[in-house]
Design a protein around this nucleic acid. Sequence first.
DNA 1: TAATGATTCCC
DNA 2: CGGGAATCATT
Length: 861
Amino acid sequence: MYQIGINTNTMQMNNNLLDEDFQEETISDISDIVNYTLTLSPSMDSPDSVILSPPPSHAYVSEEAYQPLLVSPGPSPETQDITPYLEILEQPTEKFRFRYKSEMAGTHGSLTGRKKRTYPTVQLHNYDKPAVIRCSLYQCNKKETIQPRQPHAHRLVKKRGSDEIDDPHEVDVNINSGFVAKFPNMGIIHTAKRNILPELESKIKKLKSDEIARNEGLIRSLSRREEQEVRGIMGEANKSIDLNIVCLQFEAFEVKNKIYYPLCDPVYSSPISNLKSALTGELKIVRMDLVAGPVEGQQEIFILVEKVKKRNVRIRFYELDNEDIEIWNAEAKFSDLDVHHQYAIVFKTPAYRDLDIKNDVKVFIELQRPSDGARSEPREYIYTPSNRIPSRKRPRLTSDDYSTSSNFPSNEQPPIVISNLSNLPAAQECDYQRPLGQDSTDPNELSLEIQKCLNSLTPEEITEYLTTLDTDAPQEIYQKSVTIMKAQSAFIPFSYTSHPLRNLDSEETKIITDFREEFLAFVKTNPTKKRMSMMLKSLFEKSADVSGNMETVLHLLISENNQNLLPLLLKVLHKYQETDLVNMPNIRGQTALHLAVQCHNILAIEHLLCTKADIAVQDLEGNTAFHIIAMENAPHAILKLLCMVKDEHDHINMVNYDGLTALHLAVKSNNIEATKILCENKADVNVEDKKTGDTILHVAVVDQRLEIVKFLLENSNVNITKENYAQYSPFKLANLLLRKNTPITRQIYKLLEIYMAKFKENQPLSPDDVKEKYSKVKIFTEECLDEVSEILDKSGIWYNLAELLGYDHLVRSNIFASSKNLLQFAMKEKKSIFKIRNFLENLDEFDAVECIDIMVLGKQK
DNA sequence: TAATGATTCCC
DNA sequence: CGGGAATCATT
């Protein structure tokens, strides 16, 4: 090793402690030194790396295992305690903007550690004398070649005043500094293409002369032959160089007579890539045109992206199962021409693996960069079934059957809707007869009531009569008692809130007329519950078949805001719990509930819900009843009613095919009441718009809805800092909107500013913040001193504290009369308060620790 | 040429 | 400072 003849201490130690095998290896290494010195860089495949490289499992190995081959195996357990090695305590950031020389005027950001306000830091282990740690800029050979690392042509500079100091940067370490070297305030200068060779040459020359000095013990200039050699290496270095990725090299030296003798192998940081380059820049989908589409694929989608390279980007669709395991993937198709500049891509969706899905399927889209395998954050996409409307083409009796054999009084025209009610097989009818008492619903009861209706056919009378008809809501479908609502709605006349949706055409009117006739006639036959069900089903399906929009009678009655037959039908459906019929969608995927909500028909809604209408059904735009009501300026009672339904699956937060929740729609349509009600009913205020990543707070800010912003801040847990896909937080947006310079934008910004401050206050301080705050406090306040010393006097722990502070000898000679004495003495000695605090923490003196924390950090908790 | 990279400039 | 854009250079 290099320390042979330099550091006899360690060598002797080695000899004493090493087993024979190891010694053999050590000796054979001497030949490797030659190898090392010639290549100016350690040969990683040589056995010496086994001895000298850092121990395994330290953080210095980047998690991505960027270049596994260059990470040396760690030393064996018996060697790691005695051989010097470098450990990287703080890796540099992964991304950093390399600046050109011309950009270096003024101060730009400096290279930090992985966390803010830290800096690349290394520690030298197993060495006890003063040493020098060097940091310089190296290449990150990603090729799987086992060649030595070469210096990088970029410059690692430290600013001192107006001039820049080039690498290598040196830090002296010793016992006092704990052999820790921190490298702050460094920047990376992107050397221009034309200067790369000269830069490399000078760096390599410098290394060469260091090496000569080390070998020959004196500093001299290079010989012709050596210059030639340098040029050769330079060529190599130039060939392998990647101008957008660098890493830091750390070396430890013992310096004698200005000659640097390495103490161990250099270590290399994880790669730092240039933030400005499209080759290494972050892949990101910033915005999507569409977030849902047909299973068959071939849907054209526009996405905005962060800078990409045309031929170095792919769009991948994939699906995860419940355990987050990828079970399907496919690539979207697009050509070079579909990549607009470097910021937008237009592509066609791939077909989903199963074209016959019955329900929506959620998948993900991501960008991928083949060159380095980098991926973007995924975005959600929904495949929608192509045949969402269940086929009504089920086998049924032909028209002949009902037109010929109907024994109901028929009009001039054969009724369209009339089905085969009278043809129900008698045998079946027998089967449907249930023993009385098996069901709480007495089949005869209803028909009697309806018969009464028959006799009093004026609408007014029907309406009046219906108020007496009892329809118990199955309470279990509500999460809260529905009685309050009922009490409210009882005072609302049936037509009070509702309005027609549209005018029915003649065919539709006929459907209703025929239905009415058929239905009432059927009731006369005093049917059992099962027969009634069959009849209704038959009539509903008939209606759906005949009407242009596949609408059931129920749809039609709601649409025309029918005042007499509708209430009757609703009660019947309710009474018989015809959930399936109630959930039948029309051609646009709308159920009766969708329409009832649009018509503000509160009583219909209530009945439908009591018939267990599904609040999660999405129409062809993906809208649930919640979405619809959120856009409507409807009576509050309606939304409240919907919110009362038990909702274990969070249907209130469902996203439509525009990627929006009901809350989004409420805010977008400035529907303050709906916004409030949804929020009060545990709708998630932080769900993002799947196209843009906007939360409702983003929307409220951009649309300048002061009242909504205010409400959200005061009454919900909106995240002011949550960024949308374009990396704007609501706060930042508010700030940008200040440019409009209107009173409202100013008010909104002010409001957010206040909550931002509150938010920051509540943030737990990061360990770094704590350190920083502590570093500013040098002495105890009187108050804190008294308090802490009282605690310590009581517990007697201050003896242990004194020990930890290195005052054990003073304690033994009874110099300190009390803990207050001790603390005052420590302050005089300039012991850091942070140190004292941490000692106390180790001693489980948490009360004292809290005292000090309060003094330094201000009020916490 | 048009697209992509490199460099400089600007707020 | 960090972000972006203008401008020059190369492919």
